[in-house]
């Protein structure tokens, strides 16, 4: 009993615990929440028109054979401003981008587009975060890459920079 392995058990447990701590320190926990929809069909959603001269968007707009980007953004979100020039670049390359504005007001959006430009083909207002939650989006800006069959083939969390353009184009083409 006295020389039993039982007394080495605390040593083993502690080593396992500290090994976990070490891995967690070297590779800090990733705090971004990814949507589980990648690889699945875009869920049903309804985002009515935000701007008087632009249509809104809903889930039926996406299965027409043309791949697109669906950008979740807001006029009150600072990083979204930084993203607009890159989205305009993508638009110039022929990529169609639809926007869903979260917790936003039409007058704020008008000002936002007047100041930064409008890269969107359609802009819808999300009502009470319903579309955002349906997408599994945890914040703004986030961009979903949708293929011609209306399937989500990719998600980009955070601001899209110029460096991300090739990757996004590849995902759009590949779909």
């Amino acid at each position: 009993m006295k020389r039993s392995w039982v007394f080495w058990l605390p040593v083993a447990v502690t080593i396992a615990m500290f090994a976990t701590f070490l891995v967690a320190l070297v590779r800090p926990s990733d705090r971004t929440i990814e949507s589980q929809l990648v690889g699945h069909a875009l869920p049903a959603f309804e985002a009515p028109a935000a701007m008087p001269d632009q249509p809104g968007t809903n889930s039926r707009d996406y299965a027409d054979g043309k791949p697109r980007l669906l950008n979740v953004f807001a006029s009150w979100c600072g990083p979204c401003v930084a993203e607009i020039p890159v989205l305009l670049q993508l638009q110039a390359m022929g990529v169609e981008i639809n926007g869903v504005a979260i917790h936003d007001k039409p007058e704020d959006l008008s000002r936002f587009f007047a100041e930064n430009g409008n890269p969107y083909a359609r802009v819808g207002l999300d009502q009470g975060g319903r579309a955002q939650i349906a997408f599994g989006s945890a914040g703004v800006p986030e961009t979903f890459i949708i293929d011609g069959k209306g399937r989500v083939v990719g998600q980009h969390i955070g601001v899209i920079t110029e460096a991300d353009i090739p990757d996004i184009l590849a995902k759009l083409k590949g779909s």
Partner: peptide
Amino acid sequence: RGIFILALLTIYIIGALVLFA
């Protein structure tokens, strides 16, 4: 810093548990 503290903990705690065993 985390690794530094972890190294200290390893010396004290695992050292003590080994001494105990």
